[in-house]
Design a protein around this nucleic acid. Structure first.
Length: 656
RNA sequence: GCCGAUGUAGCUCAGUCGGUAGAGCGCGUCCUUGGUAAGGACGAGGUCACCGGUUCAAUCCCGGUCAUCGGCUCCA
């Protein structure tokens, strides 16, 4: 019998008869591997364990530890869901059911929307089918036969998928799960060998979706679920969802008196006293970072003539997202949705020399974008917001060094907030403007800057903006969620549209390049992230109220006010809780407001010029002279104590 | 914008199978002056989101509007 040679990841190889399923290769290595294997990678293609080896190949078994494993496992769980649904609700049409970042979903066409009780029934059916350990069987069908089969079953969506995905192929693959009925799904796979492998899953919610995500198409019911290899990991994930709910900035924003929303201004926050404090402090922090880095701050108009937006190109592409207002002469004007066009006008307002470059314009004024009503959400998706926006006008040659400086700013700012982050370089998309040589040069400049700044990054090929490549940053918060905040985008188009020029050393006109960049992104969104990251327990240096003085009895109120005045004079943000309540009550309130330090003032303290310090996270620290506390607190502010991820985790551990 | 759900006191929520409503917390007054996470008594708060319809009667049923929440990106 003919043999093929299998090469394993460790470089070793072995010879097996032609047609041997990869599962047997696993069995030949070890029992443990055979039991753990879910699928395999053959010459970098993911396949089932039943896949027969017909040629020499590199083979890697996929086990729960493999990077691809969870995705396969979740996709199989989605199939199990579909099998359960079609079994319980005959006549249901299936759409698609992919794995997602933290679970899976499957879309169905059903008679009536699912209710929570349906989910319970479906999940119970899934467990029953998992317990029965039914095999996922792969079949190869002639394409026409498959089309007829699904058409005959009243599954036109599957027919459509077959037509779109397998054009020109003689055969298509389907997977079956045989229960009382046989569930058949058109699917490229791979899948785990049998339903018995699926354990830690849970259905979460249902929602509406459309076929192919297009509202003009067939409405469908989407069932979301999540799945992990073990019950323990599943429980941890569900706990994380609960934790995220507790940290929801919309709830904390109200509880902590930071901001509110009103139905009469949808998508626009009212910043209350404490929230404004935080907002302004962040704005000031950013100025203190940017001014020494050579930025100048400007304020440009909020409302512009149509001509500006026509020149920038936004009138054609972005108008439906802009608020338009009438002017006295009847011409519509656009409320600004971004600062760049205004900054182009600032640049163009003078003759610029190469000696003036880089010119860095920073702006924090409000922007408005008319987001669809259904997408508004807390501070993370709003209609009115401000960015820590800036545009750097540079020469072609300055790109790399300017971006390197920017990367260092990003590293510094996220470091100050204790937020870990990753960078990704997005390169030329299929639809792009300009010359390929220019793009190549720009991408090389960005890569060079990343290397020089010592910034690890991944490449997101083809994901750049049509006007230039970019670097995006994802920060990871205290409970592991990723948020895209900072961005650095090269733009060759906007200078072109506004016919920007500078005079070079050769005394000729040249076109500058614009770098759009933001580090926080928007103040609104960044504050939302900070609230959720710190669970509302801000480190001292950004806490809107840093200390509260708690007099024990009325006779200590005067002393408490003296203490507060001292703290305030030292630059600390302080309140006095002079209400006629017991000290335990005041402490409880201060803890719930997540105020970093509580200073108890009674007879002993008033007599000795001390305060009894209680820390939000560390409890009673004992009496200390006021001056000593001030010194320690100011030191903590300067060093940004409590900002690290570990500090945030400690804050979480505090009683909620 | 689309689909679904929700909207009752400042907050969290009960409730009314159609007869205009309640709790806890918070708030106010009084008593209490208390030493590290809730002292006590009394009291004030509601056009039951808004507009319209059905009805003798609507917070409840019907229609519309607004807002909020979950989705609407994940492509065998």
């Amino acid at each position: 019998m003919a043999h093929v040679t299998v090469t394993l990841p460790d470089g070793s190889s072995r010879s097996v008869p032609v047609g041997t399923p990869v599962a047997e290769v696993a069995a030949g290595i070890s029992n443990r591997l055979a039991k753990a294997a879910l699928a395999a990678s053959v010459d970098d293609r993911l396949v089932d364990l039943t896949y027969p080896l017909t040629a020499d190949a590199r083979v890697r078994l996929i086990t729960p530890d493999s990077p691809e494993a969870l995705q396969i496992y979740r996709h199989s769980t989605a199939h199990l869901l579909a099998a359960a649904v079609t079994s319980l609700f005959p006549g249901t049409q299936c759409g698609i059911g992919p794995a997602t970042d933290d679970g899976f979903f499957y879309d169905f066409v059903v008679e009536r929307p699912f209710v929570p009780e349906d989910l319970e029934r479906i999940e119970a059916k899934m467990r029953e089918m998992a317990k029965a350990d039914l095999p996922f069987e792969r079949q190869h069908w002639p394409r026409d036969e498959a089309r007829q089969f699904f058409a005959g079953r009243g599954e036109p969506l599957k027919v459509q998928l077959i037509e779109e995905k397998t054009e020109g192929q003689p055969e298509v693959s389907c997977y079956t799960i045989k229960d009382r009925d046989t569930f058949v799904d058109f699917c490229v796979g791979p899948h785990v060998p049998s339903t018995g492998r699926l354990k830690g899953f849970r259905l979460l919610t249902t929602s509406n979706a459309y076929w192919k995500g297009d509202a003009r198409n067939q409405p469908m019911q989407r069932v979301y679920g999540t799945a992990f290899f073990s019950e323990g990991e599943l429980a941890a994930h569900l706990a994380r969802i609960e934790e995220a709910k507790k940290r929801d900035h919309r709830r904390l924003g109200r509880d902590l008196g930071l901001f509110l929303f009103h139905p009469w201004a949808p998508g626009a926050a009212f910043w209350l006293a404490k929230g404004t404090r935080l907002y302004n402090d962040l704005a000031q922090y950013m100025r203190e970072v940017l001014y020494p880095a050579g930025y100048v701050e400007v304020k440009t108009p909020l409302v512009f003539n149509k001509a500006l937006w026509e020149t920038s190109g936004h009138w054609g592409h972005y108008r439906e997202n802009m608020f338009l207002v009438d002017s006295s002469d009847g011409e519509p004007m656009g409320v600004k949705a971004m600062n760049c066009p205004g900054h182009m006008l600032v640049f163009a307002s003078e003759v610029r020399s190469y000696r003036d470059l880089p010119l860095r314009l920073h702006e924090q004024t409000a922007l408005h974008r008319n987001e669809a009503s259904g997408v508004l959400s807390g501070l993370t998706r709003v209609r009115q917001f401000s960015q820590d926006d800036a545009h750097c006008f540079v020469t072609e040659e300055q790109i790399a060094s300017e971006v390197e400086a920017l990367l260092k700013l990003v590293q510094r700012v996220y470091g100050d907030f204790g937020l870990p982050f990753t960078a990704k370089l997005s390169t030329r998309p299929e639809q792009f403007m300009g010359e390929i040589a220019t793009w190549d040069h720009a991408e090389a400049a960005l890569a060079e800057a990343l290397e020089r700044a010592g910034q690890p990054y991944t490449i997101n090929a083809g994901d750049g903006a049509f006007y230039g490549p970019k670097i995006d940053f994802d920060i990871t918060d205290a409970i592991g969620r990723k948020w895209q905040c900072a961005t650095i985008q090269l733009d060759y188009q906007m200078p072109e549209r506004f016919d920007l020029k500078y005079i070079g050393p050769d005394n000729a006109e040249h076109r500058p390049v614009v770098i759009h960049r933001a580090i926080f992104g928007s103040f609104e969104r960044f504050i939302a992230i900070l609230i959720e990251h710190f669970a509302g327990a801000f480190p001292l240096w950004i806490a809107p109220v840093q200390t509260v003085v708690l007099p024990i009895a009325d006779r200590h109120l005067e002393y408490a006010r003296t203490v507060a005045a001292d703290l305030e004079a030292a630059g600390l943000r302080v309140e006095v809780d002079g209400r006629q309540e017991k000290i335990g009550y005041k402490i409880r309130e201060a803890q719930l407001q997540k105020i970093p330090y509580m200073l108890v003032a009674g007879d002993r303290e008033a007599a000795e010029g001390t305060v009894a310090v209680r820390s939000r996270s560390g409890g009673d620290l004992g009496a200390r002279p006021v001056t000593e506390f001030v010194r320690a607190a100011l030191d903590e502010v300067t060093t940004r104590g409590g900002t690290t991820v570990a500090g945030a985790a400690a804050a979480v551990a505090e009683r909620a």
